[in-house]
Structures are given as C-alpha cells and as structure tokens.
C-alpha cells in the first residue's frame, strides 16, 4: 500500500517561494485505479512525483507497505524507480535516438550491466516485444519516436513503464497531448492493464470525463487533497459539477 501523509512541498527560486503542496494525503490500495483531478496549478503532478520518488517532500511522509520511502538514499530510490514504479508522462518522453523496442527495453538496460545483459538479452527482448504486441505496436518495434503518432508514442511509453513488472503505474496527464478519441483508448488500455496485470494505477488528469473509468477520484485544490469520490456515486457528480 502506497501512502502519502500530509505532504508539503515548496519550490524556491532565489528569494521567491512558491508553496505547491500544503498537506496533501492519499492512500493507494493494491490493484486500485485512482485518478487525481484538479485545476492546473493545484499540485497534482508534483504530488504524483513525490509518490513515485521523483522528488523529495519538504514535510510529510510517503510510505510503501509501511516503510518510509521519502528519505531513501539515492541508490535505493533509483532501484525503486526502476522496479516498483512505472511512469507515463503527458509528453511521452521517449528517447528520440532509440527505436520503440529500445525505448521499451530502457529500464532493463538500466538494471543490467553489460555482461549480465548479454545473458538475459533474449528474455528481455521477448518480454518487450510481448508488451509492444499488447499495446498494439507489434509491427512498429523498429520505428523511432519521430515516425510514430502521439497515441502510438504514448502506447510505447506505457509498454516501457510495464517492462519491469512494476507494482505501481503513475500516469501524469497521459492523454493531455492527445485527441479525445485516442485519449479514451489510452485510458481503456490503462484500465485493461490494471485489471489484467493487477498493476495499481495512479493517474493525474484535469479531464473528469476520463476519470469516470477509474475506481476512485481524488480532487486536489490549493495543494491539498480535498475530496474523494467513487465515479459511480453521487459525490462524483458534484465534483464534475
């Protein structure tokens, strides 16, 4: 279980301090598909980064299965990011020099040394190809990001996030750069993966329509998690309204 408790985060530049998170809390249960919604600047992305060990909170606790992960050493945080969390970003963030397959394999390249890689190379490639097949890019594995559409790049990014079999998939506005139809496809894919692969998904979005397909919706306002609702319940309608 991933828990964030009363997280505070302030960005500072010179003497200007911008408080972004002022006591945000969230508990994510295994197998859940949670969406975090809120207006731009409400602190959703920062909150997601802190949950996924991409940043360190100024105050508050982030714990995984009862162990604090907010003050881990660099090497442990790197390992956690490599194996426990998978990330999907709004702008896909594929490496432009690499093919779709190499992009998907990147977490494995990071995990393995040169020698160990050659021993496990075939297994990793098989898994990466399987994931590309799964996201509908089986035929596009040789293609570079510039040769793919936005939806295809996001699907390749999702395949990459799943390579190491992570327990948590953290998606930051995964449809923010896509048309609504493609966005729907991506959310459906995330839902399918959540259901079939039992991967816990935390998705940040400002699109409440997309949040309908998730198990739980958390609203953020002014750097705090303010309300929670089930998409099917009456409270969700008030969030939408």
């Amino acid at each position: 279980m991933l828990i964030a408790d009363t997280i505070h985060k302030t960005y500072r530049k010179h003497r200007v301090a911008v408080p972004v998170l002022t006591g945000a809390s969230l508990a994510v249960h295994p197998g859940e598909f949670v969406s975090v919604v809120g207006a731009s600047g409400s602190g959703k992305s920062t909150f997601l980064h802190l949950l996924g060990c991409l940043d360190v909170p100024d105050a508050g606790i982030v714990s995984l299965d009862g162990q604090r992960i907010d003050h881990l050493t660099g090497r442990d945080r790197d390992r956690l990011r490599n194996t426990t969390f998978g990330y999907v970003f709004q702008f896909y963030h594929l490496l432009p020099e690499l093919s779709a397959l190499d992009n998907v394999l990147m977490p494995a390249y990071i995990a393995e040394g040169v020698l160990s890689w050659w021993g496990k190379r075939a297994a990793w490639r098989k898994r990466a190809m399987g994931l590309l097949e799964r996201v509908g890019l089986g035929q596009r594995w040789r293609h570079k990001p510039r040769e793919m559409s936005g939806g295809e790049m996001q699907r390749a990014a999702i395949a990459r996030s799943l390579l190491m079999n992570p327990r948590f998939l953290l998606a930051d506005e995964p449809t923010g750069n896509l048309d609504s139809e493609t966005g729907d496809t991506i959310v459906k894919l995330l839902r399918t993966l959540n259901r079939d692969e039992k991967v816990t998904v935390v998705m940040v979005t400002h699109n409440l329509e997309l949040a309908r397909g998730t198990d739980r919706v958390v609203r953020m306002q002014g750097g705090k998690t303010t309300e929670e609702a089930r998409p099917a319940g009456p409270k969700f309608l008030s969030l939408v309204g």
């Binding site: 956690l80 970003f89 490496l95 990147m106």
Partner: peptide, 16 residues
C-alpha cells in the same frame, strides 16, 4: 535535459 530526466525516472543513477 529531458532525456536525462527520463533516464533518472526509469532508475538511472547520477553516476550512471
């Protein structure tokens, strides 16, 4: 810059 961020988010260390 962004690629470095991606690599780090995928688990690459500063030394790496």
């Amino acid at each position: 810059y962004r690629d470095i961020g991606v690599l780090k988010s995928l688990g690459a260390s500063g030394g790496g």
